[in-house]
Amino acid sequence: MSNTAEWQTISKKGLWTNNPALVQLLGLCPLLAVSGSVVNALGLGLATMMVLTSSNIAVSLIRKTVSDAVRLPAFVMIIASLTTCIELLMQAYTYELYTILGIFIPLIVTNCAILGRADAFASKNPVLPSAIDGLMMGLGFTLVLLTVGAVREILGSGTLFANMHLLFGEAARDWTLTLFANYPGFLVAILPPGAFIVTGFLIALKNIIDHHQAQRAAARKEKPVKGNKRVRTTGTIA
């Protein structure tokens, strides 16, 4: 099972073709709510990624012992426990960020992307692929979160990487890039509508790229034989 090709497809799915935020449109609530700045986005993204990976591993481990009927409650239980762990961790190490993200950390439990992966992938696959799937899905989600956060931060307050010390300690305090001096602040970008608009643009961009790729692929592909799948509806004719 451990061939690289399979891992590659799993990775590509998580990062691009089946990206939870851009394609499955799952977990939009945290995506829209906390992507106001890069640091928020990164914090929540990392937390989600960790929960996703570990929950995938856990679910994959117990997939043969849990019966079908109770699988969803079991998965939710696992995810809830892991989320609590992460919450406690964040409380311990990045307290300020924890207070800023507030309710959205515990709300990771309800992120459908996590339960979705657990049910759709981890419950049917061995541990290693599940771990990779969780990691890549989480990474894909985090990347989208980061992009949206960056765009919104730039548009909204004219800076990038502000307040990174909340996550990386005091050394990161002066990472802040001020892109425009005396920026008046485009408040809408920071408000939820801005998140919707930016996410919409990102999805559109992805679709454009996919469309171009599909066109190129179609140009390369040879024409299939027409009608070769036909069967007789009237039985065999002698």
Binding site: P184, G185, F186, L187, V188, A189, L191, P193
Partner: peptide, 8 residues
């Protein structure tokens, strides 16, 4: 959009 972004 302008009103909520640039109230001043």
């Amino acid at each position: 959009i302008l009103l909520i972004s640039f109230p001043l």
